[in-house]
């Protein structure tokens, strides 16, 4: 069953249209990978799904109903959570308070329980709960950002470039949690510029370029034929270059 989808959406900033006529579908319990070069519109797609960027046209469908007109906070309350590019924690608040705000509407006991779940997922956070977010390392910040998103017990998690600027060993750490989340019933849309890691876990892969969806295929397809991906990528890159 389709959990979240965009139907022919366009969105952008000012005069710039960042994504055009884009349709993607996230099946329940699956991981949708979204890849593409810089400026392809990956982040805008996530922001449009979340409601941070308004739609110029098209619709966003959540469990069969149109949520395109809902503001971001209302969508969050429906069960959509997001880990933004650059983590974007609340820098003046402690790690614990950052997590707390992720479960703003939950009861105190419920929050405690969820926090324990997050700490089980990222044991490293337990020792730094009292630390101010602004002094954390990039890896720690990313864990808090994912943790904060999970505090709302979302059914859908949008993750924007989690590997950006992090050491590979830490990225591994983050990626290790994704199958666990899928196992716990969280559907995921994962945006990355770097294809490799996404490819390894994506059920469905979407390739964006210049604000449009240029390719869509099952993750297995690419895993079996790695060169297919290169074709998709290179084909479009050369198209951009204007040559034939």
């Amino acid at each position: 069953m389709t959990l979240l989808s965009s139907l022919n959406i366009s969105a952008g900033y000012g005069d710039l249209l960042a994504i055009e006529d884009m349709s993607v579908d996230l099946e329940e319990g699956s991981l949708l990978g979204v890849v593409g070069p810089n400026g392809a519109g990956k982040s805008t797609l996530l922001r449009a799904l979340m409601g941070i960027v308004a739609l110029r046209s098209g619709r966003v469908i959540w469990r069969g109903s149109d949520i395109g007109g809902l503001p971001a906070d209302a969508r969050a309350r429906l069960g959509i959570a997001m880990v933004q590019e650059g983590r974007r924690l609340f820098p003046s608040l402690s790690v614990e308070d950052n997590l707390l705000l992720g479960a703003y509407h939950a009861s105190r006991a419920e929050r405690r329980e969820r926090q324990e779940e997050v700490l089980a997922l990222f044991p490293a956070l337990r020792d730094i709960l009292g630390r101010t977010a602004s002094v954390l390392s990039g890896g720690e910040q990313q864990m808090v950002a994912v943790g904060r998103a999970l505090m709302s017990r979302p059914s859908c998690l949008l993750i924007d470039e989690p590997s950006l600027g992090l050491a590979p060993i830490i990225v591994d750490e983050i990626y290790k949690t994704l199958p666990k989340l899928l196992g716990a019933g969280v559907s995921i849309i994962l945006v990355e510029q770097e294809v490799g890691r996404v490819l390894s876990i994506a059920d469905l892969l979407v390739v964006l370029h210049e604000g449009r969806k240029v390719y869509e295929g099952a993750g297995t397809e690419f895993r079996e034929r790695p060169d297919a991906l290169a074709e998709v990528y290179l084909g479009n890159v050369s198209a951009v270059g204007g040559g034939n």
């Binding site: 941070i52 969050a76 705000l101």
Partner: peptide, 24 residues
Amino acid sequence: TKVGKAIRAVVDDRVSLWICGVND
């Protein structure tokens, strides 16, 4: 307090507060 922390969070990052499901 929770509300107070949310108020400080508005100062820090309004958008992040939205995605936490909080009406700023």
